[in-house]
């Protein structure tokens, strides 16, 4: 029983990270139908910028917001310099551009910060808290807590703000969105900034657990993509449920089978989803009447 609880804790922790990553995928997908394969790099950049700041002597509580800010700027630059100039290219071309951008980002980071792993100290110590026979790391609480807060924040953004609704409208019908005066180019920029914000935050709270290395984003990004697809691409709730599911499944396989198979979980999962339910769990059902 305590073993199971231990796996649940670890699954929820990684699951929260995947959920935030998946949410980033969903937001950009909704704005443009583009799968942004540089999403994982936002997680890495968040961690890396934070590490860089602490190495320059900036205290952690300042380094974190600076890391988030720098990543958001990187997200905006990605959209302005790589996506926007492609104009009305088809979605597949744009997706390939994001793959190229991801390689570019990883290359630059490798040159600037090297290939080695960088450590970020836990936010509130390493002393594990015993819960029901299992041990919970304080950093896990940070990850789950921050993810929960951000999810609520993003939910409110789409439900209650005009910009959020405009983004949903753009996702539902791009031409009609233009016809009510929504600046779709600006919205795309906003969506990249939001995705970068989500990624950076996830990357930073996870950094004390994952360590930061230039290619950290590859795995985290791909798993976030699987989570988004599992939940139903474009669905916010789907991204969160998908993220937690992938995290939990990984933890169970690692715990009960072998940690060697842990990374195979999401990729086996995506094959099953695509065969059984290509739209994902919360995949958009068409409610159109004509």
């Amino acid at each position: 029983m305590s073993e199971l609880l231990q796996f649940v804790f670890s699954g929820l922790t990684t699951g929260s990270i995947y959920a935030l990553s998946a949410l980033g995928f969903a937001i950009i997908y909704n704005a443009s139908r583009v799968i942004n394969f540089a999403q994982g790099d936002f997680l890495m950049l968040g961690g890396m910028f934070t590490v860089a700041c602490t190495q320059l002597g900036v205290p952690l509580y300042l380094a974190i917001p600076l890391g988030v800010l720098a990543t958001v700027v990187a997200g905006a630059l990605l959209e302005r310099l790589a996506i926007a100039p492609a104009g009305n290219s088809n979605v597949v071309s744009l997706i390939i551009i994001t793959i190229g951008a991801s390689m570019f980002i990883e290359g630059v980071v490798q040159i600037l910060f090297g290939k080695n792993q960088h450590a970020v100290p836990s936010f509130s110590g390493e002393t594990a808290i015993p819960v029901g026979g299992a041990m919970l790391l304080p950093q896990s609480l940070w990850v789950i807590g921050v993810a929960a807060v951000i999810v609520v924040f993003v939910g409110c953004f789409f439900r209650f703000t005009m910009i959020g609704k405009a983004m949903l409208a753009m996702s539902a019908n791009r031409e009609a969105a233009q016809l009510v005066g929504i600046n779709t180019r600006m919205m795309l920029l906003v969506s990249f900034c939001m995705a970068a914000f989500l990624g950076a935050t996830a990357g930073i709270v996870a950094a004390p657990i994952t360590m930061v290395v230039y290619d950290l984003g590859q795995m985290l990004g791909l798993k976030g993509f699987v989570a988004a697809t599992l939940g139903g691409m474009g669905s916010g709730v789907g991204a969160i449920v998908g993220g937690l599911l992938v995290g939990l499944l990984e933890a169970f396989v690692a715990g009960y089978v072998s940690s060697a198979y842990k990374d195979a979980v999401p990729f086996v999962l995506i094959i099953i989803i695509l065969l059984v339910r290509p739209g994902g769990i919360f995949g958009a059902k068409s409610v159109d009447r004509v």
């Binding site: 609704k165 949903l168 539902a172 019908n173 031409e175 009609a176 016809l179 004509v290």
Partner: peptide
């Protein structure tokens, strides 16, 4: 303002 052909309402909203 254009009312487009085929209505084009924001269906899920």
């Amino acid at each position: 303002s254009l009312v487009p052909e085929g209505r084009q309402v924001f269906a899920p909203l």
